[in-house]
């Protein structure tokens, strides 16, 4: 196979006296498209951006709108005429959502941290060719990617472990993901053996090698694992449905789900009871559940793309 490397021309040299306008007229040496093409591109991009922004705007606006406007619009509102925070007040009244937020934060932080630790430990041991039981354990890990035990066997396991109504039932079942183990293992395999040998000559134990060499060198992929797990723990509600009976231990997503389920059951309405419109409540819930992840994501995004790409090509 023949490969060639094209030389990329640099920007054309301009005379020192050239104007700024003249500099702007060239982009990487290529002549810029004419005004019509640029205008067309701008319009296309604007439409694309609007298509992305409009649903977000609709979600936020509807969460602030009143019943009259929602009814007039037939469901979604693009700009609230009389914005109010009734839906948010309804969600946060009584302290249930506040408590559930704390539960979710706790589960997310502990779960993601433990998950990174356990995945790194397992991936490291599986990345050392001479380690005991290396191949059968790797096959066992891979096997879990093919089959899921199912809801009822999982429930029986959690029950027999005595974890019903325990926070650990929200953390342990999804602590280790085979997919993540494979990615991190692939990353560890690419760390030069010479570095590991040098550490060993210096008297480092396996745990020290993992903690002081492997993990610092693998920050990108570990950040990906942390982010994956954080999003997964933050969004999870089904394990709580099955394993948690006390409502004061419910995570945020399950509490919010009770608002999303259509609460217009027969007999559920009461005279004189003023409730925010259902559509507003649902959109407010979307906003509340998305905000924390939106806040964290930009800080981890850099690692996220890098880690995924590295893990993908080094298998």
């Amino acid at each position: 196979m023949v490969t060639s490397t094209k030389h990329r021309p640099g920007p054309p040299k301009l005379l020192p006296g050239a104007t700024r306008a003249a500099r702007l007229r060239t982009i990487n040496g290529a002549a810029p498209p004419n005004l019509a093409v640029r205008g067309l591109k701008g319009i296309v991009l604007l439409i694309a951006a609007a298509l992305v922004v409009a649903p977000f705007l609709a979600v936020i606006s509807t969460s602030l709108a009143d019943q009259e406007q929602i009814a007039a619009a037939g469901g979604y509102v693009l700009w609230p005429q009389n914005p109010n925070l009734d839906a948010y007040r309804a969600i946060f009244s009584g302290g249930v959502v506040t408590r559930a937020t704390l539960v979710s934060v706790g589960v997310t932080v502990v779960g993601s941290g433990l998950s990174v630790l356990v995945v790194a430990l397992l991936a490291y041991s599986l990345s050392r060719p001479g380690s005991w039981g290396h191949r059968p354990i790797l096959l066992l890990v891979l096997f879990t990617m093919l089959f899921n035990a199912g809801m009822i066997p999982n429930y029986l396991l959690i029950k027999q472990l005595g974890l019903i109504d325990s926070y650990w039932a929200l953390i342990l079942p999804t602590l280790v993901s085979a997919f993540q183990v494979i990615i991190v293992r692939a990353f560890f395999l690419e760390v030069p053996q010479e570095i590991v040998d040098a550490a060993r000559i210096d008297g480092a134990s396996e745990l020290q090698i993992l903690a002081r060499i492997m993990m610092p060198l693998s920050k990108a992929v570990l950040a990906v694992v942390a982010l994956f797990n954080a999003v997964s723990y933050w969004s999870a509600f089904f394990n709580a449905v099955l394993y948690i009976n006390s409502t004061d231990k419910w995570p945020l997503q399950l509490v919010l789900r009770t608002y999303v389920v259509d609460n217009t059951a027969i007999g559920a309405d009461l005279p004189g009871e003023v409730v925010p419109p259902q559509q507003s409540l649902q959109m407010a819930i979307l906003v509340v559940s998305l905000v924390p992840i939106c806040l964290v994501y930009p800080f981890l995004q850099r690692h996220f793309a890098k880690g995924i790409v590295i893990g993908a090509v080094k298998g």
């Binding site: 969600i91 302290g95 409502t247 009770t258 559920a268």
Partner: peptide
Amino acid sequence: FNPVPPALGG
């Protein structure tokens, strides 16, 4: 079908 109420203790 309703939003969850506070637990027994509260």
